[in-house]
Amino acid sequence: MTHTAAETPRGPKPQRMTAGRIGLYAFLLVSAVFFLLPFYVMLVTSLKTMPEIQHGSIFALPSKATIEPWIVAWSKACTGANCDGIRVGLLNSFEILVPSVILSIGLGAINGYALSFWRPKAGNIVLTTLLLGAFIPYQVFIYPLVRMLSFVSLYNTLPGIVIVHTIFGLPIMTLLFRNYYEAMPADLFRAGRVDGGGFWTIFFRLILPMSGPILVVALILQVTGIWNDFLFGLIFAGRQHLPMTVQLNNVVNTTMGTKAYNVNMAATILTALVPLVVYFVSGRWFVRGIAAGAVKG
């Protein structure tokens, strides 16, 4: 390459916006619109009146925003004969969520700890079965589980659904904690043993205080996972404890007469709110959860 004296290359190379670069940004922009659009539609629809929905574009902003649909969705929307709104489901979901999350994380942590540091006999059988269980469609387990829970009178009860969530959260939780503890230096555990610690002492005094990051990841995974569950809630929770997702689907898909799309969208946003808040608050931790939970079923 030759340059005339007037344009002797010196200093930074002149920046040109290349065609490739423009295409790249264009693609990302279009993708961003694609991913955002449904949320935008949900939001504007929930703020419109029904006549406006019936005659306008779904993408248009509301001509006169109303929060009436939100009030209806929250406290008046009907599922079958009940017209108490989606708030009932919200409470149910929390009632299911809290004990299920605590139980599954606790059990998973103990499992992971026992399997990685203590290597008990036949521990591998537990691990392998749980691992396989993470991949098998739930449909295989459901019917016998219904029978078993009926047998001990827990079918269609709150403890019943909590047990089910604990059972099916166990594989991913066990694996998550096991992999984390496997990566911990074994010398630490040996030092604890030499200092006379037993199984539980080492767990509570030594291992658990060092499990902060993985506990956060487990919390994110379980809160979003259990909140978003539909199948187990539908089958095991019973009429009194239907979680929000099931209620939402009932509100939207079984209403008789004209569908109130604005109410439906308000209810949908309300249902999505908890996992979305978890997602936006946790940020990079959520991504870590995906990476750590790469075997999630």
Binding site: T224, N228, L248, T271, A272, P275, V278, Y279, F280, F286
Partner: peptide, 9 residues
């Protein structure tokens, strides 16, 4: 963000 939401939503 869609991945944080349920299939129902």
């Amino acid at each position: 963000y869609p991945y944080a939401m349920s299939f129902i939503v």
